[in-house]
């Protein structure tokens, strides 16, 4: 077999969508094996010595961010559907979200800081909504 025939490949258009993903998957697999082979022991040792729940996580802030963000994402299109194509879903949901996040991240929850957080939560979405949705006519949720 000549080199040329060894290198020749034909790709059928109808199945061409699988060619590159297959190649990539194989390379990925080889690399994974290589990593495990060269550093598997170190990785295992590290994993083994880890506590099952990492310490020192600020649970409230971390999970608060996640839960808040998920709620925000769910609420936006839902609210937006009541006022179609106005961007109000974004506007109405961003205010409480911003306020909640600002307060969540705050360490000294005194009156002054809460005021600033509240003002910011109202002003920032207003400006963004006005500029993008009203002035530039960009679609928001």
């Amino acid at each position: 077999m000549s080199l040329e025939s060894l290198l020749s490949v034909s790709i059928d258009f109808d199945t061409s969508h699988t060619v590159f993903p297959t190649i990539t998957a194989v390379v990925l697999g080889i690399l994974l094996v290589a990593i495990l082979a060269t550093r598997g022991r170190t990785i295992l040792a590290t994993v083994g010595s880890l506590p099952w729940w990492p310490a020192k996580i600020d649970h409230m802030r971390f999970f608060g961010t996640l839960v808040g963000t998920v709620l925000y994402f769910i609420a936006m299109p839902w609210v937006g559907d009541f006022y179609p194509n106005t961007g109000l879903g974004f506007y109405i949901c961003s205010i409480p979200y911003l306020f909640a996040m600002s307060v969540l991240y705050l360490h000294q929850r005194d009156k002054r800081h809460l005021m600033i957080a509240g003002l910011n939560a109202v002003i920032a979405p207003s400006v963004v909504w006005y500029l993008l949705s009203e002035l530039f006519n960009i679609s928001l949720p």
């Binding site: 963000t69 925000y72 994402f73 936006m76 299109p77 974004f90 961003s94 979200y97 911003l98 996040m101 600002s102 307060v103 969540l104 991240y105 705050l106 360490h107 800081h113 600033i116 957080a117 910011n120 939560a121 920032a124 979405p125 963004v128 993008l132 960009i138 679609s139 928001l140 949720p141």
Partner: peptide, 29 residues
């Protein structure tokens, strides 16, 4: 302060994600 800056960044990320394909909610997810 981070408690002001980060929520704004989060909001702008949402705006950017939503608007990049002219309004696709999955981009936000």
């Amino acid at each position: 302060p981070k408690n002001i800056l980060f929520p704004i960044i989060l909001m702008m990320c949402v705006v950017g994600a939503y608007t990049i394909n002219y309004g696709v909610m999955f981009d936000v997810w």
